[in-house]
Design a protein around this nucleic acid. Structure first.
Length: 98
DNA sequence: TTGATGACAGACG
DNA sequence: CCGTCTGCCATCA
């Protein structure tokens, strides 16, 4: 049933797009807010699909850090974008100050 | 259809 | 506090 998947993807995008400026949210939190407390990984899959209409850089893992996806530059870019929005990172740990 | 994989989370040691 | 294992679930080969 791809229609269900579409609804899930739309819900996730809606939640991520609803994240306030200067705020970060974990995958589990986004998945839960979207109505899928077990689809934390699906959140990453949707964001990894290169959604430019969504502040994907505000989404981090449960550790409060940026998830290394293998593509260098993207993770670094995310940190820069968050810092530009007022999100402070631990210089040593790289964790967001939530 | 089965098996393996993954922008994760939570539990365990 | 940190590293490792397991569980969840959709997507890919």
């Amino acid at each position: 049933m791809k229609a269900d998947m579409q609804a899930m993807r739309d819900a996730i995008l809606a939640v991520v797009a609803a994240i306030p400026y200067g705020t970060t949210m974990s995958y589990g939190a986004v998945a839960r807010a979207a109505g899928y407390p077990r689809h934390a990984r699906m959140v990453g899959r949707v964001l990894a699909h290169c959604d430019v209409d969504v502040p994907w850089h505000r989404v981090v893992n449960a550790k409060g850090q940026i998830s290394p996806r293998g593509l260098d530059g993207s993770d670094d870019l995310q940190r820069v974008l968050l810092e530009a929005e007022g999100v402070l990172f631990g210089a040593e740990s790289g964790k967001v100050q939530r």
